[in-house]
Design a protein around this nucleic acid. Structure first.
Lengths: 149, 149
DNA sequence: ATCTTATTTTGAATGAATCAAAATTGCTGG
DNA sequence: CCAGCAATTTTGATTCATTCAAAATAAGAT
């Protein structure tokens, strides 16, 4: 079970309108997919939605994730390594990530503190700190069983 | 003053050979540039070195940063937003980053704990944690003065 | 000095993301 | 319910970062 129940399409529509954005089938479908499949790329979203929305183009998916990111409805992450940007719908809970250094898999992990910023640096270089992004790197169970290549 | 004195070219040559890599002018120049200009892209390295090494191609710089990363001599970071991968020579001190959300500038910041992992998550999803990557996001002094666009 | 092999160059190709203009769709007010 | 405006998507092309393969070169060992 996900820590946050994924919203249904009506709820996503409402959220879009509240934010001043139009509710379109592409946006709602992308949000539904992202909430059940976190950390997916624009490409993966497009592939997944092409069955129910054959007309939706990859460029539109790029537009969608960019617009939604700019309005704070989704969050962009740029994981280490190849593969491009990934997106997620959990934006306000200050959660963190676990990434396997072998297979690249990403998992969510709740923040111990909860509120952002959950850490504060010693010296800030004159910067006003808003939040701390934490990514734990390690080796996942699957990859740990397998001998290294 | 940098927290770690940048190595001179002889020292970088030695470090390369110790690692089992050949010491080439491109690699040494890239390492010298990276140690004095942290968080630069392959493109920026190439542009900076083109004066002293006109024959060095961008593809070679990509080869170089990839090889050096694979051997742990430099570290790759993928900052949020556009612009591609960046690299740095500080690999063993478990330091963290500050990134301005407006201009994208990145600064180094020493880790409070020092040894990796400096944080441990509550639930690990069965993953063996090696280190914690922390990036503080905020608004730098420069951008805070300027009114928002 | 030469030989072996790693590295760089050359030239081309891929993949992610962006841009501009035309077509379409959602939503507002009549 | 229909018309009209504006936001959004599509279409088509382009840019940028990165990778690939084969040929040329240079580093370091013998």
């Amino acid at each position: 079970m996900l820590p946050f129940a994924p919203l249904d399409s009506a709820a996503w529509s409402e959220r879009l309108r509240e934010t001043g954005l139009k509710s379109t089938s592409g946006r709602v479908a992308a949000l539904e997919h992202l909430s059940t499949h976190p950390h997916t790329t624009a490409n993966e979203i497009h592939t997944a939605l092409t069955k129910e929305l054959p007309a939706l183009t990859l460029q539109s998916v790029h537009n969608i994730v960019q617009d939604l990111t700019a309005h704070g409805i989704i969050r962009r992450i740029d994981p280490l390594g190849p593969g491009g940007a990934r997106y997620e719908t959990r934006t306000d809970d200050n959660h963190h990530h676990l990434q396997c250094v072998r297979c690249g898999r990403i998992e969510d992990i709740d923040c111990a503190v909860g509120a952002a910023p959950c850490l504060t640096p010693h010296s800030t270089h004159g910067m006003r700190i808003l939040q701390a992004d934490v990514t734990f790197r390690g080796v996942c169970g699957e990859c740990d069983k397998r001998p290294q290549p």
